[in-house]
Simulated scan of single mutants.
Amino acid sequence: MADKGVSVNQSWDPLNYPQNLFANTTVRPVRSIRARSWTNCLESTNQLQYELDKCYEQLKHLEKDRKKIECQLNEAFVGHRISSANNIPIQRMPPNATKIDKIITDMSREHAKVITIVYKMEQLMGRELADTIHNTLEKWVETLRHLQMKRKFQMQRNAINTVVNGLSDDPLMEQMCAVLKVLSLTVRSVRTALWSSSVISLYDTFQ
């Protein structure tokens, strides 16, 4: 039975709908899973770029330090042609290379030059440098290999289905950021080791 005073055939008019029905209701914005995923992806990408910039900054400083040391050695040892040029093979970057691939290749090339100049300093002294210096160089290689392994895993995942709806694998991005952070600190230690090697070689030779 219809309520008193209300026509059964009366249609609902949205203009007459009570405006204050939801006046005391708090509407919370709903973020979809996709929106949250995009946010996490953006944060990981920004962090990755930050760590890459730190690595390149240390790499540029290392190149500058190495060239300076080469000049000092050539000035100190007149008649010796001391250079970091070498024939150590460096793996080429893959097609559609990313910034990760580029930092791996650039660091590998610089590593070859550093170990070459260290070897020539040992030849000038007639003995090997301290184990701590060699251990630092070895840690540099191990970190590069770790980063390369993460990158290969990422490429394999991409070939299968790593990117779903345009989103990257966030945990893998975080792992690569962690490796890049270690790599930056390691290159900083390599700079110190290279400087120590030059000081030792110059001091030891002219005593």
Rank of each mutant, 00 (worst) to 15 (best):
Q156T: 08
V163N: 04
T25P: 00
L167P: 01
L172P: 02
L202T: 14
T132G: 06
Y203W: 12
E110P: 00
R28Q: 07
R31E: 13
C71F: 15
W140E: 03
L167K: 03
K64A: 03
Q47S: 10
E142H: 15
L180S: 02
E122D: 04
M125H: 03
L202G: 01
R34N: 14
K120W: 06
V8E: 11
I133Y: 00
S168K: 12
A35L: 04
N16M: 12
A85N: 07
S32A: 15
F22G: 04
L129C: 10
A159P: 05
E138P: 00
A97Q: 10
T39Y: 04
W140T: 00
D131K: 09
T26W: 11
I117R: 12
S196M: 10
D65G: 04
K99A: 06
E128M: 15
R191G: 15
C177D: 01
S11A: 04
T98M: 02
V199I: 12
L202E: 05
L21T: 11
T105V: 09
E43S: 03
T192N: 09
E122V: 06
N86M: 05
R109K: 04
G5F: 01
S196A: 07
C177R: 14
S201D: 00
V30H: 09
M121Y: 02
S196D: 11
N86G: 00
W140M: 09
N87L: 06
I103D: 01
I133L: 11
L21D: 09
K68Q: 12
V164C: 15
V182P: 00
P29T: 04
V187H: 07
R188C: 04
P171A: 07
A178W: 06
L124Q: 06
E75C: 14
E122P: 02
W140A: 01
T205E: 09
E63F: 07
